[in-house]
Amino acid sequence: MQLSDFIDPHWLKEFLLFMIAIASVVVIALFIGLIVHKLYIEFRAKQITMFRQEYVSTISRKLIEPNVEIEKPMGRMRREALGDVMIDILASVAGDMETQVKRLAQDLGMGEYYVLKAKSGSWINRSIAIEKLGFLRLPEMKGFFRSLLSEDGNDAEILARAVLALSFIADDEADLNVINHILQKPFFGSSKFNEYVYTNIIKSFVKGRQEEKFLQFLEALKDDDSIPIMLKRDVIEACGSEVFYPVKHIIMKYFKQFFGVPEVKITCIRALGKIGGADVCEMIVSCLRDDDWRVRAVTAKNAYLCTEDIIVHLKESLHDESYYVRVNAAVSLSKLGDKGLAVLREGMLSTDQFTVDISRYTLDEARVRV
């Protein structure tokens, strides 16, 4: 029994030829479409590159000669090119030049352009617009970012970009409250993201000479039960990353108040270790004897930032029951000059085989660094 017994062979042949013809047309159309799209992308890339070079030259002249006129960009490619150039320039200038570029961005309608684009029906267009608007760091856009963060139903990715954008220009407690309202949501962002947001906030407050406001906020945050402890930890981590010296006494208060929370205690040790000071070294000595091995390990890792008085305590840590404490103590000793290296050489004569091995290994690494 064959297919031709049920279907007219002539009709079947015509049908197959018809389907082959359609498939051929589709393949040819797709190929032509691919070529056209490739040519368009290459043309667009060349145009944007040309516009960028033009705006780099024009804006550079404008910063030197204020009388130079720059026409308001027309068309999407020109606006995108101008926005990218301004973002690059703002990343490398400060002071009066930064103010001039921001004013120019507003005068040329870049703020309005990205706000309009942020209302697009396309998720990717909204995300890119908010991100670029944030990098422009226009103070006038603060209200727009706040409104995005206050709206219900916004995508988590949109909220993350809006939080980041507001962090670049935050300079009062109201901004911090809006940001914290988002950051404290369960599973919203990672600790690293929170830390990055607050490093931007600290830079913004310092740039605006509002350090005292931030110190008051940090002091109040310590006793605010509505804010998760882990978010408080991330804020302290950011202070350490920025080596923000004025917060030292407040971090010491956090250390005492949250002494029973190892995660916060560890973060305080890291932050204070970067800031330094005699009182910090006293705290580090006490933490080398903490019951929690994680606290001892982090303390040993940052102990080299103290004076040589810490060496005798690190020598004891070479015999700690925790592997990580021993390793970090050895590494810190290797960074404390000749006296620290002398302790490691002495450790090579120990009856503790691990102390012998880690001392030898760390000394070899120290020679490589030299």
Rank of each mutant, 00 (worst) to 15 (best):
P9D: 03
H10G: 02
F15V: 06
L16E: 15
F18Y: 14
I22G: 02
I28C: 13
A29S: 15
A29N: 14
A29P: 05
F31T: 06
I32P: 10
I35T: 11
V36G: 01
V36Y: 13
R44G: 00
Q47F: 07
T49F: 08
Y55S: 01
T58S: 13
I59H: 05
I59P: 00
K62M: 05
V68G: 03
K72E: 15
G75F: 06
R76W: 07
D88V: 12
I89F: 02
S92P: 04
A94G: 11
A105V: 07
V115A: 08
W123V: 05
W123M: 03
N125F: 03
I128N: 09
A129M: 10
L133M: 11
R137T: 03
L138T: 02
P139K: 02
G143T: 09
L148F: 08
A156I: 03
E157I: 14
L164V: 04
A165Y: 01
A165K: 04
S167E: 15
D171P: 08
E173Q: 15
D175V: 03
F187S: 10
F188M: 06
N194G: 14
V197G: 02
N200Y: 12
N200W: 06
S204M: 05
F205E: 00
G208E: 15
G208T: 11
G208S: 13
R209K: 15
E211G: 14
A220L: 14
D224N: 09
D224Q: 08
I227P: 12
L231V: 12
A238T: 04
A238Q: 10
C239E: 09
C239A: 03
G240Y: 08
F244W: 15
Y245W: 12
Y245T: 13
V247S: 07
M252V: 09
Y254T: 11
K256D: 11
F258G: 00
V261E: 14
V264T: 10
T267A: 09
I269K: 00
I269H: 01
A271L: 05
G273F: 04
I275M: 11
A278K: 10
A278E: 13
D279I: 02
C281W: 03
M283H: 02
M283G: 10
D291N: 13
D292N: 15
A297G: 14
V298H: 12
A303L: 07
Y304N: 05
I310D: 00
I311L: 03
V312C: 03
K315L: 02
L318E: 03
V325W: 08
V325Y: 05
V327K: 00
N328D: 15
A330D: 05
A330L: 04
L333K: 00
S334Y: 02
S334R: 04
L336K: 02
L336H: 01
G340A: 05
L341T: 01
L341M: 07
V343A: 10
L344G: 04
G347R: 03
M348K: 06
S350R: 00
D357F: 05
D357P: 07
I358C: 03
I358P: 00
S359F: 06
S359K: 04
T362R: 01
A366M: 00
R369N: 11
R369F: 14
